[in-house]
């Protein structure tokens, strides 16, 4: 009885479809829908716009998956993602922390960094340095070479990937 009562209450809350004007009809058929689809194909509303041709941008310029284009950092039951190319230095003994461990809880970069400063460090770069218009400073390069932490490049506290700096001559040389 209770289940009937609950079903009735739920039906009343879910379905306010039936009104005095509602008319019951038989459900449509595959044949009727096929006919409707054929008619629509001949009078497709998109034909009211100018025709366009070309490749499908979702195939030629797909949005890369976040995880596939990121690097996991994982430690002590927590994990986060930074853009691939943002990890500038990873000492051998810490490389095991650069893969996802099953059971880890995914958190934001800010939360993860605040909890793992003992082995995680950052280098703050400018946008011009990240986009390869300017080189990293000597001080940054020295830190990356000698530090015993995993080092992530950041811009305004957000992890950012780095495109290698090219001199004007290198930039003009087409890649082989």
């Amino acid at each position: 009885m209770i289940s009937h009562f609950l079903a009735t209450i739920l039906a009343l809350s879910v379905c306010q479809f039936a009104t005095a004007e509602s008319k019951m009809r038989d459900v449509t058929t595959h044949e009727a829908l096929s006919q409707q689809l054929r008619a629509q194909q001949q009078a497709d509303p998109i034909l009211t716009l100018k025709p366009a041709e070309g490749d499908d941008p979702t195939k030629t310029n797909p949005t890369p998956d976040l995880i596939a284009s990121s690097q996991f950092l994982c430690y002590n039951g927590m994990a986060t993602l930074v853009p691939m190319g943002a990890v500038l230095c990873a000492p051998e003994k810490l490389k095991s922390r650069m893969r996802f461990t099953q059971g880890a809880r995914i958190v934001t970069w800010a939360e993860f960094y605040s909890m793992n400063r003992a082995w995680l460090s950052t280098v703050a770069v400018s946008l011009d340095q990240a986009t390869g218009k300017l080189p990293l400073s000597d001080e940054m390069i020295k830190k990356v070479k000698n530090d015993t932490h995993i080092i992530v490049s950041t811009c305004q506290n957000g992890p950012i990937s780095i495109v290698p700096f090219k001199t004007a001559a290198e930039a003009q040389t087409p890649p082989r």
Binding site: P83, I106, A130, G158, P159, V163
Partner: peptide, 21 residues
């Protein structure tokens, strides 16, 4: 679920990926 905002800065090859906090 944890949210991430990623800014993809075009104009370089590869583009620069920046996670905005």
């Amino acid at each position: 679920y944890t949210n991430f905002i990623r800014q993809v800065i075009m104009g370089t090859t590869p583009p620069v990926f920046w996670d905005v906090t």
